[in-house]
Nucleic acid binder design. Structure first.
Length: 422
DNA sequence: TCTGGGGTCCTAGGACCC
DNA sequence: TCTGGGGTCCTAGGACCC
């Protein structure tokens, strides 16, 4: 049996840990730039605040109902995520961290035990140790564990757990097909056209038909709904195949200088990401674009891709590439709202990257320099040491985070104080 | 006025090989 | 009427996830 454990309203729940008075209150967390709603408490959901809703549409609603609003505090959420995952590890022989707030636990190999009691214990322990509420769904396959988790969450009067051990057909009959993991909007529309409305209906469809319209991915989902495991646990974290850093700017940028600094910041951040997983990139893409949502404005959007002779993870090379790319694509006279750097065709040292005949860089030197840069920045803060091409304030100054909570768990100066002054 | 960021996988079709 | 057979690689586009 497999369990899917996930934190309810994760970002909101993290904020509540350090501000318990927020329990029972409507709370929302916003995306970068404080633009859209990305996490809502149950009370906020009850106010009809939608996932992904632009915040300017609900200003009045927020004011009237005294909704508590937070910018997203990724340092906090990342740290809380690690606490949850570490707590979960002891409850199963193997675990897959599926996302920042979800893990699959594989119980196979465990001695006979009471599943329901075990699931309840997981929930209770995470609550006591970390302070966030989780739901636990258990089933014979990952897709069914997801279904169970969904049902556990929907049942507000329940105890936050749901087991699908056998005879789960009836449960599938109550589940809209769009709520099945892997069935998105497009597939839902298609399935509805053919009269398939529930998860159960999908299990009754013809295999070949599913294969044809939903590809092998859809077929696997169907089999998993029937109890046949097709999607296995990924216990070790695979290296990323692409990394990128992209931002929407609070205020549009117009000059090549401003964009150049932003892209240099993004390239440097990508370098950090590469080095963290010890890989190097072959393909480099930079793009810039105007605000596609501003109907009246002149639109422009272009990207430039280049290939490194020898894969690199040196910030110096990546920043140079950003500068070169921008020269190719920049046109003056536009208000640029978004930009980004994307790296692809990543290679990993164990795989033995191909060296170039024409490469004259001292790689060992770059490697040592980047190691020094990373360790200084790890100790004194990101961008303490940076290239001259980067901005002085870091790209954070180009975005807006007016309601940021403290780094309670990651910065000594911002740790919560209890009682009198220190 | 104001609208996130970061990923993965699969397929079809074209270009090319012998 | 009647047009070989078997393959690889690459890319764009489309779907999905959190």
């Amino acid at each position: 049996m497999v369990a899917l454990v996930d934190v309810n309203n994760f970002y909101v729940s993290c904020e509540r840990v350090f501000c318990p008075a927020l329990h029972g209150q409507p709370v929302i967390v916003l995306s970068n730039n404080d633009g859209c709603v990305v996490s809502r408490s149950d009370e906020a959901k009850a106010l009809q605040i939608g996932m992904g809703q632009p915040v300017f549409e609900i200003r009045e609603l927020i004011r009237k109902n005294r909704v508590h609003v937070f910018s997203s505090n990724y340092a906090l959420y990342g740290d809380m995520s690690a606490r949850v995952m570490n707590t979960l590890r002891q409850f199963a022989p193997s675990l897959e961290v599926y996302s920042v707030d979800e893990s699959f636990l594989d119980f196979s190999g465990m001695q006979r035990f009471d599943l329901a009691a075990h699931a309840l214990n997981i929930r209770k322990t995470v609550w006591r140790w970390v302070g966030v509420p989780v739901c636990v769904g258990v089933g014979p396959t990952k897709v069914l564990a997801k279904v169970a988790n969904h049902l556990a969450k929907k049942d507000k009067a329940g105890n936050g757990i749901c087991l699908l051990e056998n005879n789960w057909e009836n449960a599938l009959k109550t589940l809209d097909v769009s709520d099945v993991w892997g069935i998105g909007r497009q597939y839902t529309r298609l399935l509805h056209q053919y009269g398939i409305r529930t998860a159960y209906d999908l299990t009754q469809a013809n295999d070949a038909w599913v294969r044809k319209h939903l590809s092998v991915v859809g077929l696997r989902i169907k089999k998993e709904l029937e109890g046949e495991a097709c999607i296995h646990l990924e216990t070790d974290v695979p290296n990323k195949k692409n990394v990128g850093t992209t931002r929407t700017f609070r205020q549009p940028l117009s000059t090549q200088n401003e964009l150049g600094e932003a892209l240099a910041d993004f390239a440097a951040r990508c370098g950090e990401k590469l080095r963290k997983q010890q890989s190097s990139a072959t393909m480099f893409t930079a793009y810039i674009q105007t605000n596609h949502l501003a109907a009246g404005e002149q639109q422009y959007s272009r990207s430039f891709t280049l290939t490194f002779h020898t894969p690199t993870n040196s910030t110096l090379q990546l920043v140079n590439a950003a500068k070169f790319a921008l020269q190719k694509i920049f046109r003056s006279g536009y208000r640029y709202k978004r930009a980004g750097v994307l790296l692809g065709e990543l290679v990993h040292p164990c795989a033995g990257g191909q060296m170039s005949l024409f490469d004259n860089l001292d790689h060992a030197k770059h490697t040592r320099l980047m190691a020094a840069l990373d360790s200084v920045n790890a100790r004194f803060g990101r961008n303490t040491v940076r290239t001259a091409a980067q901005s002085l304030g870091g790209s954070a100054r180009l975005t807006q985070q007016n309601r940021l909570s403290p780094g309670y768990t990651t910065k000594w100066k911002e740790a919560l104080r209890v009682g009198g002054s220190a």
